[in-house]
Design a protein around this nucleic acid. Sequence first.
RNA 1: GGGCGCUUAGCUCAGAGGAAGAGCGCCUCUCUGACGCAGAGGAGGUCGCAGGUUCAAGUCCUGCAGCGCCCACCA
Length: 893
Amino acid sequence: MSAKRARRTAQDAAGAEPRTAPYNPLEVEPRRYQEWLERGHFRAPVDPSRTPFCIMMPLPNITGSLHMGHALNHTIQDLLTRWKRMQGHNAMWLPGTDHASIGTHVVMERELAKAGKTRFDLGREKFLEFAWAWKERYGGLIYSQIRRMGSGCDWDRVTFTMDPGYYDAVIECFLRLYQTGYIYYGKRMINWCPKDLTSVSDLEVHYETVQSSLWYVRYRGADGGPDVVIATQRPETILADVAVAVHPEDARYREMIGRHVIVPIVHRPVPVVADARVDPAFGTGALKITPGHDPTDHAIGADHGLPVLVILDERGRMTAETGRYASMDRFAAREAVAADLEAAGLVERKEPYATNVGLCDRCRTVLEPYITDQWFCRMAELAKPAIEVVRAGRVRFHADRWTDVYLDWMENIRDWNISRRLWWGHRIPVYHCADCRQHAAGRTPPERCQGCGGTRLQQEEQILDTWFSSAAWPFATLGWPQETPDLRYFYPTSVLVTGRDIIFLWVARMIMFGLEFMGDVPFADVYINPTVLNIEGRRMSKSLGTGLDPLDYVEQGYGADAMRYALTLRCSLGQQDLRFGEKMLEDVRHFNNKIWNAARFVRMHLEGFDPAAAPSALGLFDRWILSRYARLVQAVTAALEGYEFDKAARALYDFMWSEFCDWYLELAKVDLYSDGLAPERRQAVQHTLWGVLEGTLRLLHPVMPHITEEIWQELPHRGVSIVVAPWPEAEGAAVDEDAETHTVTIIAVVRAIRSMRADLGLPAAAPLAPMLRADGSARAVLAAHEEYIAALARAPGLTLGDAPSRREGTVGTVAAGVEVALEIADTDRERARKRLAGELSSARADLERAAGRLADGSFVARAPVEIVEEERRREAELRAREQVLVGYLDALR
RNA sequence: GGGCGCUUAGCUCAGAGGAAGAGCGCCUCUCUGACGCAGAGGAGGUCGCAGGUUCAAGUCCUGCAGCGCCCACCA
């Protein structure tokens, strides 16, 4: 146990209680949020007289609950929206959820499985009823969590991707792409999940390295020709082999090309073909060709006019045609076939082999390359303008490095498999003729087939990829394809805030859809927020048990503001990850309490204060803090403009705590507690306390909306809510260099006295009588503010004049050019000597460095004049300081 | 196989060419009238390693190492 903790515990045991209760966010936050809703502060109806600012929320899944990633993502969006609203924009943040077809399927089917059922037991219609009931039950949960975080969304516009209007917009997108000729249909090899029974797009494949085996299998030559040995990790697919391929330049196999070999087990003679896609360095340099079960083989087979054989069904089981392997699972079949090959003496050897297998992103089942009827969207044409707008800076990524990531993917884009063999989603608006297999696209079935005139038309069973529907999010939420006022007013939107994991899945596709359907980019800026990791730097995951629930922390008593601030403080452009730990919340809780109590102090001293009356007697420190505040306004505004959220948060923290509380409040106390304070001085101090606090609250509000509102409402102010208060301009509070310089001097002097007190071991409460000596303007400033220095340094006997720099029985130093001396008792001589010696040695080290640089001819000749001058000034100062310290030290010997 | 990011005080992170910073933690002191979720004073870093550019390098360049991420998917 630390000493500090021990003391605290002892104090607790003694029953010592803090005089005031700390700030309690749990009481404040829900109440304030409710008030904002009731007052309609988050509503943003179309208003042509104001500039719109619009953010579309990256839509959470209906199956999900709020996690740390959302907490950060929403904090940033809310921060931006609130800030822009305060700047006078008509700020709109649109919330919504995603039907997340495969994700929801997985969750619901897991639920069904508990009752021993599958979705096929229910049938399409019943299953969809079940899904809607699910959505009603859980879909609202995430909204209440979003509200609890303080997010100021326009709830009147909340959108679900299967709402009728949105559904219609998605269908419209499909039909237009179909008419343009970008959508095509046919049997293609895709990534198939044998568990979910659907295709998944390339982006939804999760690769993992697993330990597997590589079997070297001998294929006998046909008609007495030479054998060939191939290497495979999937012996079961040998049954579907239609050829063996070798590299055309491979000398080992030149003789083989055009001859035939016998596929083991099925005893099928197949040709040996030459193809440059074979890597001669891998395995034996001979590749078995299985067009039905491997994408590369599929391509090679197509080019060589080879047939396609299929030996696995949609569930990954061996088909009926495979004889004794029929209905075996693919992994069992692998072992069985391998064993049979072994028994036949055809396995040359088997070696361990690490390979990447593609897993279903949702259910982690090993995916199977599989040939089915699929819908694809051509991407080359859509990608072209989407590349151009980013190159031209019409869409800007923050941080900038994501631009290359985006461009790289877009330039190598491949066609998009948009169909899913699932039920929960937007059903593809195409009708197939049962007679001639022709199809036609449309919202309703055609009366008869255009090909054969038949009337047996059936709608396509498959639905669209979830990401196809979310690609329309920036405009389908605003009423597209209707030309609504909303659409005209808010599109293009302002900023997209999202994670890097969906730059391809979502961001790129929104840009392509936006350009295709709206003829304009969907947003001007894309801010990529960091990924939230736990404190060990591990990914948060529910299944690994490393997930953290932000609402847990909020309700534990830290509150939403603390969560928001903790995340914002670490949300920098430089970092791509953000490590989160509970300690961070504690820090912010302390900060909240600091603000709360500072505000209490201010209010306590606002009696008789009239905010409308301009202050007529500002003192040095009033001017100082106003100047510091003016800089703060600039710094915070600039940081937000540059998406440097951490800088904004840090600037606010440092100002509030280290300048406003530690110095200005303490200095103000000297005035406020003095008996004979002139009324105009009181007014000036009150005005400054109020003005700076009120302004800082406004700057803080986007990050910590609740506590700032709670305090702001208790202050004299000009509006109904801080939510709609104007963002501070450096109005009336300009930078005052003079006040800053002089205050720095005074602070340095106070610190010097405090430091001497501590080094000499003098009691904290002992009244001191330091002697100060200064020249010029510093002297005048000190003379005018002796009272403040005396109070803050607890030095009522302070004198300003000719401090003795070589006097027996004193210790001294130089602070900001002011000599500060203190008489010491005989018993303190040793401590004083130690302090002086320490200071002297570090002064000498600095001096040596400065003198060294100035003695270097090339430095003086080549460094810029200002730098050299600065060094000279420093050297002179250090020399003077050294002299003074030596003087004191000598006098103590 | 390609690409990106990170490596600064015990921990979490700022700093991006001119004297090493913050918060927490640690040490000492303080029952001071906003706050002990506090105040005051301290200790603590050859800025991953090796070269280079420069009068000057956490900061720019080149390698290397470790950690993390992304793309591609090789039988």
